[in-house]
Design a protein around this nucleic acid. Structure first.
Lengths: 355, 355
DNA sequence: AATCGCAATGTAACTAGTTACAAAGCGTCT
DNA sequence: AGACGCTTTGTAACTAGTTACATTGCGATT
């Protein structure tokens, strides 16, 4: 321990030395002031309120700024303003259309609000989530948006310790300790099930991804199990991604009593299901209907178009960004927000063959 | 102007006042020192080199830290260390699997290197790219990774002004002003074309996305046009995404002399093409072969599996992260890096019908 | 001519940490 | 006993900006 510290210390000093030798110190505000023969306050004013400086002086200062290639130190600015103008988002992975879309919308809204976005991935691991969250706060994130994994105790500690604004998304739960902005995952799953059962399907295969640490999937499955009186449900788990959907679908199709419809807990999984059905030579929806959840951008273009439950992911990103920004600005904790989902019927679902 | 400044000033003061009333000032290092009855230096030591402080004192200080819920100000740390430990990435959009994968790999590697990732989207607009880049640097990004849009003059100015490390990715160009880490887009396109022409295809439809500001697409098209002696090429532009692929494919299929193969400049576009072919009742590859570029994670799972040119996108993200980190650390500009691509033949390509 | 108001500028004290250097305390060796 | 070395701690000066307050100088009133 002691050795490690000493080592770190030594290397730090060495690095600092190199610094001083290698690169000429960057110009500071005082250098500019000296070069322009004015006070530091005047330079600062040229930067922050140019109108209060005489055109004459301003020009001289601007000249000095340019010739010294001066740039304000963000850290020094932050120390004075108390603001870093950066917030962070934690998502399980970027390699999934739904999170990417969410982050995209969030980044756009944050940009409008003058904030930048730090992104970290957790891999759905709540220990890693906590570690990354601390790291982000330590480099200056003014607030956090978490998605996918439930708010772990660690995040609550973090929020408490820093008075740190943390918004949880992808689910709605008015009883949660932190504000939640999301949809009702149980209702989402029921919407999909209702659609299939309304069409007359009684044997339905539920295709889903991994469960570990994924509250959304769990909530959806719970809701389906609770509604299992409406139809005979079989559950098939697969890995993440299209490949997982393929394999789980293959398992469902191998059932002696083949389902007449597949309820996929995401459109990505549904894409795998459609590929697998095509491979099996089964017609959609003639032989088997397919429904997804998410309504990704390509879903309307598939052949046939994929029936899906549209989730307001972009809106969720924008709302979360706005809520967090206002929380930071006003110090007032935002309200929970329930966003509505919507069934988008397309060609991939129809009545079962026998009907 | 003056009024605006005054207004801003006034509201700022008001805000500060509110601050002081509403939230109790956060504890500083000096508060902790006072509470523990030690000097600020000792508190700092407890934080940075606990071994050099006697267990007795350390305990007292740690107690004070806990009871005051003290947290170091990131800005103050940054001002002293000269490091913010954050770098930024600029991508055209997050809503595209290829950039999401790239960013994911980058974030992972940066995390290993103790750096955090700021993400901003440019929408493929170089003006916006420049604006966002400045914004990111102003809040403390120590380096930049750009992708997709060519290094605009604005970025060069930024790099020059700050001595800011900027790495360009998604293309390889040893003559570029900033280090590039990427693949040879011309060669990538030729690889795809060679595969089709080796199979015997002579009428090939090239399906591509929008051109504005997209150097990668342009480079690929240039290479194809230069090789147009190998086959008769028709070019079909579509919007971004699967929908664009569908529409452009529809146009290609409507040609009096229908192409026997479709060369899609991305797998996303290829997915659109496959959907469209399915809609048209054409068999893949029996009637029309399809090849993509990217080799996305689902490409191997489609029906039939999509032949694609695999791009080392994840590796590119990791390499860019490592290169940028080392540039920041050592002040030594990294080398350009050419990453190799690879044809992945799958079921979607075969000899044309007549052969 | 004296006073007032205002714009333009400077001085110095802030922000919240880190750290070089000094000093005190204590045990050990000569 | 005095010198030396070690650990432990404190003082004060840094980092690079912002800003409250003081000051100067000029034109316009009174």
């Amino acid at each position: 321990m002691i050795d490690a510290v000493r080592l770190a210390d030594a290397s730090k000093r060495a690095w600092c030395l190199t610094q001083k030798v290698t690169r000429k110190r960057r110009a500071t505000l005082r250098d500019v002031a000296q070069a322009a023969d004015v006070s530091v306050a005047t330079v600062s004013r040229v930067l922050n309120a140019p109108a209060t400086v005489s055109p004459d002086t301003r020009e001289r200062v601007e000249g000095a700024i340019d010739s010294l290639r001066f740039m304000r130190s963000p850290a020094a600015r932050a120390i004075n303003s108390g603001r870093t103008r950066a917030v962070a988002a934690l998502v399980p992975t970027l390699d999934h259309a739904i999170f990417a879309r969410f982050l995209g919308a969030m980044e756009t809204r944050l940009g409008e609000l003058g904030l930048s976005l730090l992104v970290a991935t957790t891999g759905g691991d709540s220990e890693r989530e906590e570690r990354k969250a601390w790291g982000l706060v330590e480099i200056g994130a003014e607030g956090l948006i978490v998605s996918g994994v439930s708010h772990s105790a660690g995040l609550d500690r973090l929020a408490d310790r820093h008075d740190l604004p943390i918004v949880a998304t992808s689910f709605f739960d008015p009883d949660a300790t932190m504000p939640t902005i999301g949809y009702d995952n149980r209702a989402v799953a029921r919407t999909a099930l209702d659609h299939l059962s309304d069409l007359g399907h009684r044997r339905i295969g539920v295709i889903h991804g991994p469960l570990d640490g994924n509250d959304r999937t769990q909530a959806r499955l719970d809701a389906l199990e609770a509604s299992s009186d409406r139809a005979q449900l079989s559950f098939h788990a697969g890995d993440l991604g299209v490949g997982g959907g393929c394999r789980a679908t293959a398992a469902a199709l191998a059932l002696p009593d083949r389902p007449t419809a597949l309820l996929c807990l995401s459109d990505v999984i549904a894409l795998g299901a459609m590929f697998e059905l095509q491979r099996a030579g089964l017609a959609i929806p003639g032989d088997v209907s397919v429904i997804g959840i998410d309504d990704l951008s390509w879903s309307k273009h598939s052949a046939p178009g994929l029936t899906s439950v549209s989730l307001p992911v972009s809106e969720m990103g924008a709302q979360a960004a706005a809520a967090l920004a206002s929380w930071i600005e006003t110090q007032e904790r935002p309200q929970h927000q329930l966003l509505s989902h919507r069934l988008v019927p397309r060609g991939s679902t129809g009545p079962p063959a026998g009907v």
